[in-house]
Computed example of a mutant assay.
Amino acid sequence: MITYGSPRSRRSLLATEVRGVVATGAGRPVETTTVRVPDPGSGEALVRVQACGVCHTDLHYREGGVSTDFPFLLGHEAAGVVEAVGSDVTDLDVGDFVVLNWRAVCGRCRACLRGRPQYCFDTHNAAQPMTLADGTPLSPALGIGAFAERTLVHSGQCTRVDPSASPVVAGLLGCGVMAGFGAAVNTGGVGPGDSVAVIGCGGVGDGAVLGAAAVGARRVIAVDKDPRKLEWAREFGATHTVNAAETDTVEGIRAATGGVGADVVVEAVGSPNTYEQAFYARDLAGTVVLVGVPTPDMRLDLPFLDVFARGGALKSSWYGDCLPSRDFPALVEMSLQGRLPLEKFVTERIGLDEVEQAFDRMSRGEVLRSVVVL
């Protein structure tokens, strides 16, 4: 049995048929087609998706850059309302407004048992597959698959937040904004008075700019080759900008920090070249945070003596090292208080049938975030 319609009503359902955006093969245009979503089983929840951001990771899935386990049900940066839960789900109610997350912690792995659930090594997804109309199983992007009118997830992937928040804004915390914000604040440990540089000012990079500004960094230096993106970064709190097409990145960051380099440099590109720039653009004993995602073929070559002599820390940030149950409600509350201008990330609102065109605009750098509204 499942809980459906209200927290107290229980009845069984047939599988739900919805429209969803599917990638059928590497490089092929996505298709909007019928998706069958099963009733929630043990530990699962059925969520009516209200909004889902178009993230670059979805494009990676379409291109076969994440996996070749096609077909994929794309979309993962989403918010919506819980419509049904499995009978053993006790921490979630029908009607809850939730942001979906792709790192539902298990509570039992060695990271969780050491009090570090943000590093959980055994995160949960729904056990049952969603399928095409002919029964072909779908691989949901990041275990979510939210370019669909409804999706099936593990209940732990649902994080309750204040229902007065806009789904269009709240859903952005499900991936890019949280990854960038957390890279600066959680992984980088940025605090009041620090100097911070962010290389790459797309959605993740601007999340890092926003996070650094929100916690009181003294200087926030945005680096990109696109003047449009540098202007966006200023709207999120950048105090200085460096146009990498015109100025050497390392020299530009040093010039903005009195010649010494930044306390924390967030690399949001995922390139060996920009990582090397981040390495040399930090102050002695400074911190580099890699949140940009490299491809499997990339290699890094740094003088080993420089790694030793410059000291500090070289870190990678997984999902902004966030704990959704802690961070999502807090950031939503800050947004509602007017302290985080999350709405500025939303360049356009689109329908399910416009995802392919949104990928094109994203690739050309014309949008910060397209958001599918259902």
Rank of each mutant, 00 (worst) to 15 (best):
D69R: 10
E235A: 11
V373I: 06
P167G: 05
V190Q: 05
L323R: 13
D58T: 02
W318F: 12
R8H: 09
G80F: 11
T241P: 07
F121C: 12
F70I: 06
S9H: 09
E348R: 02
G95V: 04
L323V: 10
R103N: 14
W232H: 11
E356S: 04
S42P: 12
K229Y: 08
V105F: 02
L305G: 15
A208W: 06
V265I: 03
H124E: 13
V105N: 07
V161N: 04
R150D: 06
E17A: 15
G200R: 10
G115A: 03
F345Q: 01
L305H: 15
D248L: 04
A15N: 13
V190I: 13
V99H: 09
D306L: 12
V220A: 10
A184L: 05
G53D: 01
L173A: 05
R326H: 03
F359Y: 15
V18T: 04
N186P: 02
L92C: 10
R11I: 10
P137E: 09
Y119W: 15
R36L: 00
V260Y: 14
G311Y: 14
D301I: 14
D306Y: 13
I199F: 14
V355G: 03
T187R: 01
G312K: 14
D88F: 06
D360G: 13
R369T: 14
G64P: 01
H154Y: 07
G216K: 03
T3P: 01
E246D: 01
A23F: 03
A212E: 01
D327L: 04
V242L: 02
Y61F: 02
V367N: 15
E348A: 10
I2F: 05
V30W: 01
T159R: 08
P163G: 07
C106L: 08
R326M: 08
Y319K: 09
T68L: 02
A184F: 13
A313E: 14
T347V: 02
G312E: 05
V242E: 05
C106N: 11
L368C: 12
A214H: 11
R361H: 12
G43A: 10
H124Q: 12
D321E: 12
P71R: 00
E83K: 01
R219Y: 11
D91V: 12
T123Q: 10
F359P: 01
R11D: 14
Q277N: 15
A141V: 03
G174A: 09
Y4D: 03
G200N: 05
E348N: 02
W318S: 09
L336T: 12
G174I: 11
A146V: 10
S271P: 03
P137G: 00
F121K: 15
R28N: 07
G145H: 06
R326Y: 11
Y280W: 15
K315N: 09
L100T: 10
V204T: 09
D224I: 10
A358S: 06
C106K: 08
Q337N: 13
L352E: 08
P167R: 02
S42Y: 15
A217Y: 14
F97L: 08
I350H: 02
P137T: 08
G143W: 09
V177Q: 13
M334P: 04
R361K: 08
P303G: 13
P129S: 11
R36V: 11
R108P: 04
T295L: 11
V22C: 00
L14E: 13
V94T: 11
A45E: 06
D39Q: 07
P140M: 02
A78V: 03
V89K: 09
G5Q: 00
T241D: 06
D134L: 07
R19M: 15
L59Y: 00
V54Y: 00
